[in-house]
């Protein structure tokens, strides 16, 4: 359940759209829910969002499964979303992904035992000029090299402590 404050925020988002088109608020409300409920969307969360927008659950699942920005399983504190589309792949995203896997001892879609890191692969994030790249939280990390990855991991660990 959202807090009163967040519920007001939901109402505000719904109010942006014409009467009867409250389904349009789905994506911003899902983002809000993901932020609020541990960084991922459980089916209970999605059902809750459906009830807020008065639409069927299946309509929420349809949207939430489409976007890689929505996590449908619990994730770690820091999510590495590595782009693997053409330009990044040509610039070595495969090696970056392999390096992260080995370094953190996890596979794609998995989370480290300490709950700190999750590795995801995503499609083009529109930063091909800075390939290979990944998204970490709200920021892009660009021109990745194994050294840069090491630094990013250290930085995250430092933040966690």
């Amino acid at each position: 359940m959202f807090s009163e404050e967040k519920l007001n925020k939901v109402k505000e988002i719904i109010a942006r759209y014409p009467q009867g088109k409250q389904k349009s608020a789905l994506i911003p409300v899902l983002h809000l829910a993901q932020e609020e409920f541990g960084g991922w969307l459980s089916s209970e969360t999605m059902d809750y969002v459906a009830s807020l927008l008065q639409i069927t659950s299946i309509e929420v699942y349809e949207v939430a499964t489409f976007y890689s920005m929505f996590n449908l399983q619990p994730v770690g504190k820091h999510v590495f979303e590595v782009c693997q589309t053409g330009p990044c792949m040509l610039r070595g995203s495969d090696q970056i992904i392999d390096y992260i896997k080995k370094k953190l001892d996890i596979g794609v879609g998995e989370t480290t035992k300490d709950g700190l890191f999750t590795l995801k692969t995503v499609e083009c994030l529109g930063a091909c000029g800075y390939a290979p790249m990944m998204q970490l939280g709200k920021h892009y990390r660009e021109h990745l090299t194994p050294e840069k990855v090491d630094a990013i991991i250290e930085e995250c660990r430092a933040k966690a402590n």
Binding site: I58, E59, E62, T65, F66, Y67, S68
Partner: peptide
């Protein structure tokens, strides 16, 4: 209403 498309 109960059939839909999921994921990408």
């Amino acid at each position: 209403k109960d059939l839909n498309v999921f994921s990408a």
